[in-house]
Design a protein around this nucleic acid. Structure first.
Length: 887
DNA sequence: TATCCGACAGGTC
DNA sequence: GACCTGTCGGATA
């Protein structure tokens, strides 16, 4: 909608609306869809209005509207702003009005509006975000980078077509060529060369058909590598001596077509390379070279924000604190400058070098602050140039092109910092000739000797950092499995560990006993569920400890498509008395110890086990179909078959996984005994499905699945028993206070997306449903991103519980039955509704509270106040029980 | 046989 | 396109 139109709408509404419909008319004026607004206006089920207060309107993410008779609109607004409803539903605007005045706040930008009601049309722009318009949209930091990367991708594609060779040497030559050209573009836009020198020369000196471009560029690159200027041909004399290794070896320059030449010139002429961030651009350009990675361009480069989360606690905060402490001590500041010049930074999975580049820039920035301070306190300062050298930066990268780009980007970063330095202090070292770049090695970090790349046996500190590759155990290549096997010294734990474990274990051995520490961005999987006991005891064995950590946060960067993973940051050092810091949602807490689950607590790891450490009955995972979507179907599909073939009735069973149980919409499955196979085969649509299962299982890459092709009429894993069952969701939303557990009639098949206890008492239902148990699941269980994951061998078999007296069991069973009875009070509501924290009925909540109190009594007489209390108790108990077992 | 996980996957607003 | 929440089957014991 046009802005003028919106303004007109708002003026119109003021004349024609009444108080009852004002908010709806206002939303319509900004182009909100009629259907949505009428759902907002409606009452009862399906309404968008989440407010429980009559007259008020709360539309998730959009608005909280409060009409009031009170005169103090401002107070009302503040009250609303801090309410739970607002923090939970995050309405973009809060509007309070008595129809004389109107007060509003934009909860995103914190802008406020306070105007007489009739003045609304003159302030209509305030609510434009409803229409998707932001007032001052910050320019996305990577726009220039993305444009440049796309242009380079185009050039790269054409060169590939014109130069089809695909051997490692030609690929390397092309990689080197691209990095040299990138340098030239950058150089001509940032003052290393004269303005536009490279582009103008190429345009003016070479033939339009591109035929002489290779020989021209070969000569030019040679000139850039020639110190003795007397040997330079006169037409290239404006180009300076560059060196630094970038142009030192001769590699063949690819052939150019007319089209390729024109794109090369466009790259130089149309893009402003001075706007490029070497840190991010490197990752973008790296993706260009790997055509398979184009779709996920830049997906795995670490954002500036996340890099800072590693760098600050790893070393920068300390340096800053040292600076602050000694602001008036010239001697100490000089020492600090010296100290900075001796630090080594090592990224053993450096990609195109963005961690190293940002670390470099941050150290230069701090150094400049110190210089500035020294200039202030010493009238005559004798400071020279920067002491920070690119040679303090080390990296290992498997990909040849990425490693070339890393070297190049470090030079670009150095030049950028030199420009800043010059601006501030009026002096700087010349960028040319280039000094040695970082020590970036092209190798597999998983097998390379890190100490040979970066020696950390000297007294100077080495900080290891980075974002190594993550890959779950089921998705690893044979080579990656081999890397893991070696990192785990042949121990079988390697088989279920994420690929990043290689870096964690190698880094642990590397820093152990030396003046080193490490900080990695990692998948959060290493701090949950089964993997905890594989990795962390090995880290502690090296005499190490976690000294800072960020709890789970969603991966994000500015790439078009983001990787789907939730991350943590772990900082590990040799054991020390210095403080430890835990970060969550940017809240920083100093703690006594950081547990491997990244909570405040001791270093206990809960180990996966197939034996139950309490007296509870067996819980098993549900039945797994591996059917290629043939044996499981919706109710309507089953009914269609039955309408035509009523004799198929005994072949079907009701089926539930987690989703079915929680939403209340069960599916059906073909559950065919061998004795029924003939009947099944006689029904064409069923026979067809059985054949399709056969095909699917034969086509699978997994040998075990192939084997099940022999029984295509059956589920691959059949744990079903025709008994009452307790169903426990295997993956469920962390937003719920409880994991909803169900009690099912016999005859329902539970799938492998849920777990089952057959023929169990209400007492067991009570235990599994309790706060005590869920606190355990939350803290030590695995997670899918941040969903709760319930795996029997991790959270059920390990749940520590004292022997329970019969009398207590009865009380728990009674309270458990009361929870079930309370659910029965809402027969038309799904579990989803009943357990949504926004809609959970108070009576059900009370029934759970009573159950929780009964379960608490199993552990101690005094009721637990918080989950933290519960966990401390459980961990102590777990330790006692498992130690007793060992003894 | 039985299992825990996923630089996710798939539906909804 | 952001938000919400759990499928499905591999790899390995």
């Amino acid at each position: 909608m046009h802005i003028e139109q919106i303004e007109e709408n708002v003026r119109h509404l003021l004349l024609n609306s009444n108080q009852q419909s004002f908010i709806y008319d206002l939303l319509l004026a900004y182009g909100k869809p009629k259907t949505s607004v009428s759902r907002l206006q409606s009452t009862g089920p399906g309404s968008y209005n989440l407010s429980k207060v009559p007259g008020q309107v709360l539309w998730k993410k959009t608005v909280l509207y409060i009409p009031t008779a009170e005169s103090d609109l401002h107070a009302k607004l503040e009250e609303a702003l801090s309410s739970q409803a607002v923090s939970r539903n995050q309405p973009r605007f809060i509007i309070v009005t008595d129809f004389n005045d109107l007060a509003a706040i934009d909860t995103c930008t914190r802008e406020r509006l306070n105007v007489p009601f009739v003045e609304l049309p003159n302030n209509f722009a305030f609510f434009l975000p409803w229409d998707g318009r932001e007032k001052d949209l910050p320019i996305k930091e990577n726009q220039a980078d993305a444009r440049a990367a796309e242009k380079m991708a185009k050039l790269f594609d054409i060169l590939k077509v014109d130069n089809p060779a695909n051997d490692p040497e030609s690929n390397h030559a092309l990689n080197v060529f691209l990095s040299r050209v990138l340098f030239c573009f950058f150089a001509e836009d940032t003052g290393i060369f004269d303005k536009d020198l490279f582009t103008l020369k190429v345009k003016g000196h070479t033939l339009e058909d591109g035929s002489d471009l290779p020989s021209y560029l070969t000569t030019l690159f040679r000139v850039l590598n020639t110190e003795d200027r007397s040997k330079v041909p006169s037409y290239l004399v404006e180009f300076p001596y560059v060196n630094g290794g970038l142009f030192s070896d001769e590699h063949p320059v690819p052939k150019f077509s007319k089209h390729a030449r024109s794109i090369l010139i466009e790259c130089g002429a149309e893009l402003n390379w001075s706007e490029i961030n070497p840190d991010i651009f490197g990752s973008m350009i790296q993706a260009v070279v790997d055509v398979d990675k184009r779709g996920s361009m830049g997906m795995h480069y670490t954002s500036f924000e996340n890099i800072m989360k590693v760098i600050k606690p790893l070393f920068l905060d300390d340096l800053n604190a040292e600076f602050e402490r000694n602001k008036n001590n010239s001697k100490r500041l000089h020492e600090l400058v010296l100290r900075i010049s001796k630090i080594k930074i090592f990224d053993p999975a450096c990609g195109s070098g963005n961690f190293l580049i940002i670390a470099y820039k941050e150290l230069r920035k701090l150094e400049m602050e110190i210089f500035k301070r020294l200039d202030e306190i010493n009238k005559q300062s004798d400071l020279g140039m920067s002491g920070v050298r690119l040679s303090q930066f080390y990296g290992i990268e498997l990909d040849d092109f990425a490693h070339e780009v890393a070297l190049l980007s470090l030079w670009l970063a150095e030049h950028q910092m030199n420009l800043v330095f010059h601006e501030r202090f009026g002096r700087s070292e010349p960028t040319l000739p280039l000094k040695p770049s970082g020590n970036i090695v092209c190798d597999n970090a998983a097998s390379a000797d890190w100490r040979a790349v970066c020696d950390n046996t000297m007294p100077d500190p080495v900080f290891v950092l980075g974002n190594p590759p993550y890959l779950g155990a089921r998705n690893q290549t044979r080579e990656q499995k081999e890397d893991l096997r070696q990192a785990f010294n042949d121990h079988e734990d390697h088989k279920d560990s994420d690929y990043i474990s290689v870096w964690l274990l190698k880094a642990s051995r590397y820093i152990s006993g030396h003046n080193s520490s490490f900080g990695f961005v990692s998948t959060n999987s290493i701090c949950q569920g089964e993997q905890v006991s594989y990795i962390w005891p090995r880290v502690w064995n090296e005499g190490l400890e976690l000294h800072f950590a960020y709890q789970s946060f969603k991966w994000s960067n500015n790439a078009k498509r983001n990787a789907g993973v939730t991350c943590v940051i772990v900082g590990v050092r040799n054991i020390s008395n210095a403080p430890k810091t835990l970060y969550s949602d940017n809240i920083k807490t100093t703690v006594a110890n950081i547990s491997p689950y990244l909570t405040e607590g001791s270093n206990i790891c809960v180990e996966r086990t197939s034996t139950i450490i309490s007296d509870l009955p067996v819980m098993m995972i549900g039945s797994m179909a591996r059917d290629g979507k043939q044996l499981i179907m919706l109710e309507e599909t089953k009914d269609e078959i039955l309408a035509k073939y009523p004799q198929a009735q005994p072949l079907f069973k009701r089926l539930t996984g987690t989703n079915e149980f929680i939403s209340g919409v069960f599916r059906w499955c073909l559950w065919i005994e061998d004795s029924q196979l003939e009947l099944a085969r006689s029904i064409p649509p069923i026979a067809k499905r059985i054949d399709a299962v056969y095909e699917f299982r034969m086509a699978s890459s997994a040998k075990t699945t192939n084997q099940y092709a022999k029984i295509p009429h059956k589920f691959a894993q059949r744990l079903f028993k025709n008994q009452h069952s307790i169903v426990v969701p295997a993956t469920s939303s962390e937003r719920r206070e409880y994991i909803p557990v169900g009690y099912l009639e016999p005859g329902v098949v539970i799938t492998n997306s849920a777990n089952a206890i057959y023929d169990a008492s209400p007492f067991v239902f009570g235990i599994v449903s309790s706060k005590m148990h869920i606190a355990w699941v939350r803290s030590i269980g695995g997670q899918l991103e941040t969903r709760l994951r319930y795996a029997p061998e991790i959270v059920y078999n390990t749940f520590p519980m004292p022997k329970v007296k019969e009398e207590t069991k009865k009380a728990i069973a009674k309270a458990a039955m009361a929870v079930l009875a309370e659910r029965e009070q809402f027969p038309d509501k799904s579990i989803e509704f009943l357990y949504d924290p926004d809609t959970m009925p108070v009576s059900l909540k009370c029934a759970h509270d009573r159950l929780d109190r009964e379960v608490d009594k199993v552990f101690r007489a005094k009721a637990f106040e918080t989950d933290q209390e519960r966990l401390e108790f459980l961990f102590k108990l777990y330790e006692r029980i498992t130690e007793a077992e060992v003894a």
